[in-house]
Design a protein around this nucleic acid. Structure first.
Length: 581
RNA sequence: GGUCCUGUAGAGCAGUUUGGAGUGCUCGCCACCCUGUCAAGGUGGAGGUCGCGGGUUCAAGUCCCGUCAGGACCGCCA
């Protein structure tokens, strides 16, 4: 090594030692006769002092330098208690510029926000910033811990192919042309789902992998076209076994990285309960404002809007003092989510009820309303009425918006839970809204809960899946299920989904074939590793914990990918080859 | 596919409502001064395709149309 010490490790115990440091010029404070340089390397920062004969005047921000000097205690009164190395400084006797830096496209040592686009274009500079570097280290630590825990629990790490077969279900595939077989295409895996089940047939019993997954769908703040899952599958288990492994993994990650003791076993909500109380299948339990079911309360109402299959309410504390403009903005907000609007009643300070909806309600309805929904004087009550699912979705979204706007969410808190007993199927609608069949909520290999094993096909809308999602602070961070391992049951699921024997054979034939050879009962779970890291790093976006992320249009500002290909590449790749009929 | 927000010097912004000279702020950059700073300080200076194209107008950063890029959301993501 061209250095003898790292900058951030120097302490007063090193006083008197001759050291050689190597790193970057983080800051320069030039007083003419004396120049201070904050020298940064991966370990931290140390102050280097230059006297006028040392030519430090020409050093600039982010020059890469080697410095030889003597560690000494800072003169009394000049210590910096804010720095770990603040008791000492290095008096430079020699400085060598290892490489110069052009003027920076954005400041590295500063707190100002820089647009993400510029940061991503110069991501290598962005990662020099402490916050991003820290996020990278947190992710690294999470990777090590995951491997540690899974190893301790006896799991076998298996890598599965990233050039594989296109699966017509689910998300859009990224496709890769195959030069050796023009007209045929690989797909990048949306997840290793089928492989991990095959590994159960293979008898490995406990499989895991940090798996890259690829989905060609529109992006969001928490979605990238390529992302990483902690993928886990186990044989001879039921739901409790998978949940226990999942909790041990997550508990270790949060304990070692966030210093948080996971309160295991985690609380559980059924899907139905989560939807009824929070209007979400991934409720954020860090605040209250639960939904109130008002269907019964308004069962005899003469107000047309509330003569609906479902009427629900959510309370906004202090919401009665909103201006007309703010209340109109809520309507606009609801319409932007596809709703007709968001009915509201304002509870005035004297307890009387105001707002356009109030005059449509009877005296009886008005008199008990505030008490029924738990509203105090000064609050606003929002209502949604109509079909249960979209109404609850709207109220659930309103609840989150209320939580954010009213500052009800304690950001220092962690809230974990399981959401279990999700429906197995949901109806498929045609263009005019008629139900024309069923689709799997999870995927077609998800088993029914034991009590639905024999009857799910008779009542697909009611049947519950043997599935579980882990939720943290309103984010689904992992989800899994107990799989179907019997051909007979799988066939009944395909029947419900309207998948013919021939179709199933074409799409999943290799899995069904494998299941002829003594498949063990099995189940598993997959965690969104990027989201977990983002939560642990305290970031808003998973882009913060991905070294080289892409923008919302799938563009990489650094490399410029994706790019056009040359006619030669196009020809050779066989992109335009006609498949044999 | 849809809705909304944003685009002005290397970075972060103001200016756009009510059209009138590229008008301004903070940081950075360059030169000089400065021996105890740590977001150092001081003096001076450079730096602009107001995203791009078109239109209206005597005149457009500002108004209109289109387009591109970034962000957020809906659809989508088994």
């Amino acid at each position: 090594m061209i250095r003898t010490h790292t900058a951030g490790s120097l302490r007063k115990e090193h006083t008197g030692q001759q050291v050689t440091l190597a790193g970057w010029v983080a800051r320069r404070r030039d007083h003419g006769g004396v120049v201070f340089i904050d020298l940064r390397d991966a370990s931290g920062v140390a102050q280097v002092v230059f006297r006028e004969e040392d030519h430090a005047h020409d050093l600039r921000a982010e020059y890469c330098v080697k410095v030889v000097g003597e560690v000494r205690r800072r003169p009394a009164g000049n210590e910096n208690p804010d720095l770990p190395t603040g008791e000492i400084e290095v008096v430079a006797s020699e400085v060598e510029v290892l490489s110069e830096s052009a003027p920076l496209p954005f400041p590295i040592e500063s707190r100002v926000d820089v647009s993400e686009e510029v940061r991503l274009k110069y991501r290598y500079l962005d990662i020099r910033r402490q916050q991003i570097a820290n996020a990278m280290r947190i992710r690294s630590k999470a990777t090590y811990l995951t491997n540690e825990v899974m190893n301790e629990l006896g799991f076998v790490y298996v890598e599965t192919p990233t050039l594989t077969r296109s699966t017509p279900e689910g998300a859009r595939d990224f496709l890769v042309p195959v030069r050796l077989q023009p007209g045929n295409w690989y797909a990048l895996p949306q997840s290793p789902q089928l492989f991990k089940q095959l590994l159960q047939v293979a008898g490995l019993e406990r499989y895991y992998q940090l798996a890259k997954c690829y989905r060609d769908e529109d992006l969001r703040a928490d979605r990238q076209p390529e992302f990483t899952q902690i993928d886990i599958e186990m044989s001879f288990v039921d739901q409790e076994d998978v949940i226990e492994v999942a909790e041990r993994l997550v508990a270790r990650l949060w304990k070692e990285i966030a210093g948080y003791e996971l309160p295991t076993p985690l609380p559980r909500l059924t899907y139905a309960e989560a939807m009824a109380r929070y209007g979400s299948d991934k409720p954020d339990l860090r605040f209250g404002q639960e939904l109130v079911d008002m269907t019964e309360y308004f069962s005899a109402t003469s107000f047309r809007v509330f003569q609906a299959e479902y009427v629900g309410a959510v309370v906004m504390p202090g919401g009665a003092s909103q201006t007309r403009k703010e209340l109109d903005a809520w309507q606009e907000w609801a319409r932007s989510r596809g709703a007709k609007g968001l009915a509201y009643v304002l509870v005035q300070q004297d307890g009387t009820l105001g707002g356009p909806v109030a005059k449509n309600l009877s005296d009886t309805e008005l008199s008990g309303l505030a008490a029924k929904v738990g509203a105090q004087p000064g609050d606003a009550i929002f209502f949604a009425a109509g079909l249960p699912n979209p109404s609850r979705d709207l109220l659930g979204a309103a609840r989150l918006e209320i939580g954010r706007r009213c500052g009800l969410i304690d950001e220092s808190q962690w809230s974990f839970l399981w959401v279990v007993d999700a429906p197995m199927f949901e109806p498929v609608h045609d263009e005019v809204g008629r139900e024309i069949g069923w689709t799997a909520v999870h995927h077609p290999f998800t088993g029914p809960k034991p009590e639905w094993a024999d009857t799910f096909q008779d009542n697909p809308g009611q049947a519950l899946a043997y599935a579980y999602d882990m939720v943290c602070n309103g984010n689904e961070i992992g989800g899994g299920s107990i799989r179907i391992h019997r051909a007979e049951m799988q066939q009944r699921v395909f029947d419900v989904l309207g998948i013919s024997k021939e179709e199933a054979e074409t799409k999943f034939g290799f899995l069904l074939e494998a299941f002829k050879y003594g498949p063990p009962p099995h189940g598993g779970i997959a965690f969104g590793f990027d989201r977990i890291c983002a939560l642990l790093a305290g970031g808003e976006s998973i882009r913060d914990v991905i070294a080289f992320p892409k923008t919302a249009s799938g563009y990489d500002p650094l490399t410029g990918a994706p790019t056009p290909i040359t006619p030669e590449q196009r020809k050779e790749a066989g992109v335009d080859a006609r498949p044999k009929a």
